[in-house]
């Protein structure tokens, strides 16, 4: 091989990062479709056909609903945007690789008191992030309120939790419900002697 072989340029799908021809086996073929129709129609002739059929359906629907058979120019104008939006609507359910549907984690806050040095303790708050609360903000607020150190710590199994110095187990419940009104009192639990006890 005397000449340098030129690198092959492969068309990668920006949606799933796979080469375009493997989109159909990718994690989310549906989402790739609009891009594929635009950029690689020759790979999936079926898609184009589908879309054309859909458009025909839509046109006839529109004609029926309006009740007026409008001119050709009008139809073309209304159809073009509708082709793009029809595919993007169906998502909702998040899928893990492997086709399993992701379980929604139970929203609850767990407060635990850990004693260290016999007379000093740390209060651990888990689960604030499940309510969409920013942990760094929360730790700052907690630290300010109780005038102690509060830090975001990576707990077991990659969950982040807040460690607050000192025993604030009983005041903290009131504080949480006051500062974040979307957290229901019933979702807060204490851990006492290894058992989960509802706070309310």
């Amino acid at each position: 091989m005397a000449e340098k072989p030129q690198p092959v340029r492969v068309l990668y799908c920006p949606v799933c990062s796979l080469p375009a021809e493997y989109c159909e086996f990718g994690p989310d073929f549906e989402k790739c479709k609009p891009w594929l129709i635009e950029n690689a129609p020759e790979l999936y002739p079926d898609l184009l056909k589908d879309r054309n059929n859909k458009q025909v359906d839509k046109v006839s629907e529109q004609l029926q609903s309006v009740g007026i058979s409008s001119g050709g120019g009008d139809v073309a104008a209304t159809v073009i945007p509708s082709g793009g939006t029809s595919t993007s609507k169906q998502e909702e359910v998040k899928r893990l690789p492997g086709g399993k549907i992701k379980k929604k984690e139970k929203q609850e806050i767990i407060i635990e008191k850990i004693v260290r040095n016999k007379r000093k303790c740390v209060t651990v708050v888990k689960g604030l992030d499940l309510f969409g609360i920013k942990l760094s903000d929360a730790s700052k607020k907690l630290g300010k309120k109780f005038a102690t150190g509060a830090s975001v710590v990576k707990g077991p199994t990659e969950k982040e939790q807040i460690d607050v110095q000192g025993d604030i187990a009983y005041d903290i419940m009131e504080f949480i419900t006051e500062t974040w009104p979307d957290v229901p009192e019933t979702a807060i639990y204490f851990i006492e002697d290894g058992r989960k006890v509802a706070a309310a």
Binding site: M1, A2, E3, K4, P5, P7
Partner: peptide
């Protein structure tokens, strides 16, 4: 061996 010419790149 096929990669040799472009290995420098």
């Amino acid at each position: 061996p096929g990669l040799e010419p472009v290995l420098d790149d």
